[in-house]
Write a protein that binds this DNA or RNA. Structure first.
Lengths: 127, 127
DNA sequence: GCCTAGATGAGAATAGTGTATCATTATCAG
DNA sequence: CTGATAATGATACACTATTCTCATCTAGGC
């Protein structure tokens, strides 16, 4: 998988912009759907290719939740975690993080990263 | 998916026992591999069926980590989370949990559950 | 405007998981 | 011991997510 040699196209612009403007992580399908409104006939392959390139550039990051398709979001949001609504299945960012994680593991274990995902109902679905 | 009408077989015993004795969550393949040592010719279908029944009984619980096959572990361990070694890919239990999660989400959101997964090197791989 | 290599889109191909089918085997009540 | 029927195992099938192929299109240097 090599870096895309760069050429400005409307499909890439559309995808980049959708990702840039979204306040929550989007799956490939959500991306396709949203970007297809701007570029007619947009295909999945292009979405995958562009997402791959953006990941390579470090412009976006993957958000993985078990049993769910991978979602992507802007990389410049700082450390945060996610919340998935059990009703509408959308994923939201949540600010902040727990910092006493180190204390949880046995002494010889080395922690490099961590994921925290909360599940429940989002504001819209909770009423 | 209905409850299995119960009949004692060596394959079920083997699977139940492997799960019972394992100190860490096991995937279907790990289960198959481990139980096949006791019951020759054990098939995947039986593993899936048995796991399904045990889940239904509440005897085991699913442990899901993004991009990884689902693992299963005894349900009577109490609340805890998991650690995955980035080298050997095994998953370990970690005791304890962060309790100030409620403070992280916007006020209208309702939290029902949460997952915390740490990644790094296990004691064996860290040296 | 022309040309070429990069980019695209449609669909085929792949990979990983889990379920359904069905002939055979084995449990266990009587 | 025997028979009814649940359980098994091999395999086909279904699904989803992602990659590949390749003919066609197009951005952009000249």
């Amino acid at each position: 998988m090599k870096t895309q040699p760069a050429r400005k196209t409307k499909q890439r612009d559309a995808l980049r912009e959708v990702l840039e403007r979204s306040e929550r992580p989007l799956s490939v399908n959500e991306l396709l759907e949203a970007a297809a409104k701007r570029v007619d006939g947009l295909g999945v392959a292009t979405v995958y290719r562009t997402v791959g390139a953006l990941l390579g550039d470090g412009a976006i990051e993957a958000v993985e939740i078990p049993g769910e398709p991978v979602r992507y979001e802007r990389a410049n949001k700082g450390h945060h975690h996610h919340f998935q609504c059990e009703k509408c299945a959308r994923v939201f960012d949540i600010a902040g993080c727990l910092e006493n994680l180190r204390t949880l593991v046995p002494p010889k274990f080395r922690i490099r990263t961590h994921d925290v995902t909360l599940y429940g109902l989002c504001a819209a679905c909770a009423r």
